[in-house]
Design a protein around this nucleic acid. Structure first.
Length: 428
RNA sequence: GGAGGGGUGGCAGAGUGGUCGAAUGCACCGGUCUUGAAAACCGGCGUGUCGCGAGGCACCCAGGGUUCGAAUCCCUGCCCCUCCGCCA
């Protein structure tokens, strides 16, 4: 959520900044609601003050043994006036909040102009795609031909967009998770954390998935009598970031860096027909997520640092990749700036997203009321959140299968992973 | 699943209809004293919101209700604790 004060005081600048993501802020609607809010709030609070002081007087009179009947008569019509004012204010506040919650974050100055993925700007490239002297196969062919990847059985068990892995490929998948967690905890200063994979609405609101993106989530059929509604997490970002919802962190505890491995569940409602083959786009996948809670003046630097941490994984695995900065039109709702890391996939002859690293500044923190105590002011202030995948495990697996495929149909294991595979050098 | 007991400021813990945004203790911050520290003493010390300001308003788990007035009474939900049962 953006700062309501900023919108009130400088709505034109905010609206102009949002045009970079092709979002049109309804200035008229906002101002109309805001003006009503202001006068109604002043009126309501005046009535409340009146009620409070009269009630106090009644209390005093009663204590003094006086007759309070005349005082009660005086206060009679105040009550109904106040009730209607409060009700109007509540309704108005609710629509104002709704409007406010729908406004996306303001893109950073670094974010390039553009409408779609095609307008993202490449800023870096690492590694040289291997030249193959045999026909390149995709991960589906590679994995199924050795009987260790199975989409048909997965479809039987559940449905489309799921996978079953067997033997060495399943082990490789697990090895990747261990490897990533180890690197981030021992070399990059992250604290490992384990969290629930089912969250409530408040958590999803905090990170910005709700109310706008409910269609992308799996909602659990919970007891209709209960008011609680549960969802499967679309990313560990949700539970991990919400650890500090409604909390005030001591300055000495900053920055907080957490790494979390979790499954992710996405209904991918808007993507039918895209990447239907293989495990590029699944309803369930594993991810190692990096989350940082930092001082406001440190979030820009933290994003660069975190992106480096994710890149390190690709480099250690010797997978060629490039880094792009998302253009305004491709930027996610809550982010001010996002880098995507894209790994080389030989079968597609292109780079595909394997990590997304974003700075949210105080946008999520405001929704979550996640604060830190600024020692300079002594006051609680919103902190900044930064996160990114480090990395998406399923897609990393695909990248290894494809980039390390051999002419004989086997797959070489990247050197650094061999220790995590009991010394195994090759999958066949 | 059954039976009880609870959710109050950073923590502990009073408060059961009025002058309570909330006693007290601890912690914390500032000061006095001290060569320095500790102790003692003095002062300060929740959050949000509206307002140029004085100040107002809201918040005692959450949402409703009763009342002139609710931390306090009623209803619903959530969460925690204890005991029994079941269980990886």
């Amino acid at each position: 959520m953006l700062d309501p004060k900023l919108i009130r005081s400088d709505i034109n600048t905010v609206a102009a900044a949002l045009t970079k993501r092709h979002y049109t802020l309804d200035i008229e609607a906002f101002n109309a609601l805001e003006n009503q809010r202001k006068s109604l709030q002043i009126e309501t609070e005046a009535l409340q003050a009146e009620r409070n002081s009269r009630s106090k007087n009644i209390g005093k009179a009663k204590a003094a043994g006086e007759d309070i009947a005349p005082l009660l008569a005086e206060v009679d019509d105040l009550k109904s006036k106040l009730e209607s004012a409060e009700q109007q204010l509540n309704t108005l506040q609710a629509s104002l909040d709704e409007l406010l919650q729908q406004i996306p974050n303001i893109p950073d100055a670094d974010v390039p102009e553009g409408h779609s993925e095609a307008d993202n700007v490449e800023i870096q490239r690492w590694g040289e795609p291997k030249a193959f002297d045999f026909p390149v196969r995709d991960h589906v062919d590679i994995g199924t031909s050795i009987g260790q990847l199975d989409f048909d059985v997965a479809a039987k068990l559940t449905g489309s967009r799921f996978a079953v892995m067997h033997g060495k490929i399943a082990q490789l998948h697990r090895a990747l998770i261990q490897f990533m967690l180890n690197v981030h905890t021992t070399e990059h200063g992250y604290q490992e954390v384990y969290v629930p994979f089912i969250v409530n609405k408040d958590s999803l609101f905090g990170t910005g998935q709700l109310p706008k993106f409910e269609a992308d989530l799996f909602k659990l059929n919970t007891d209709a009598e209960k008011s609680s509604e549960f969802y499967l997490i679309p990313t560990a970002e949700v539970p991990v970031t919400n650890i500090f919802r409604d909390e005030i962190i001591d300055a000495a505890q900053m920055p907080q860096r957490m790494v979390c491995h979790s499954p992710c569940f996405r209904s991918e409602a808007g993507s039918y027909g895209r990447d239907t083959r293989g495990m590029i786009r699944q309803h369930q996948f594993e991810k190692v997520e990096l989350v940082q809670f930092v001082r406001p003046d440190e979030s820009d630097g933290a994003l660069e640092q975190l992106r480096g941490h994710a890149q390190t994984i690709l480099e250690k695995l010797e997978l060629p990749y490039r880094t792009v900065i998302l253009c305004g039109g491709d930027l996610g709702f809550s982010a001010v700036k996002t880098y995507d890391l894209e790994v080389w996939l030989p079968s597609q002859d292109t780079y595909r997203e394997i990590s997304s690293c974003s700075n949210f500044r105080d946008f999520q923190a405001r929704r979550m009321k996640a604060r830190w105590r600024n020692p300079d002011t002594g006051k609680p202030e919103l902190l900044h959140t930064v996160n990114g995948s480090g990395l998406a495990v399923g897609r990393t697996l695909i990248a290894i299968l494809e980039n390390y495929q051999q002419a004989d149909g086997s797959i070489q294991i990247p050197e650094i992973l061999q220790a995590y595979m009991n010394g195994c050098e090759r999958i066949a």
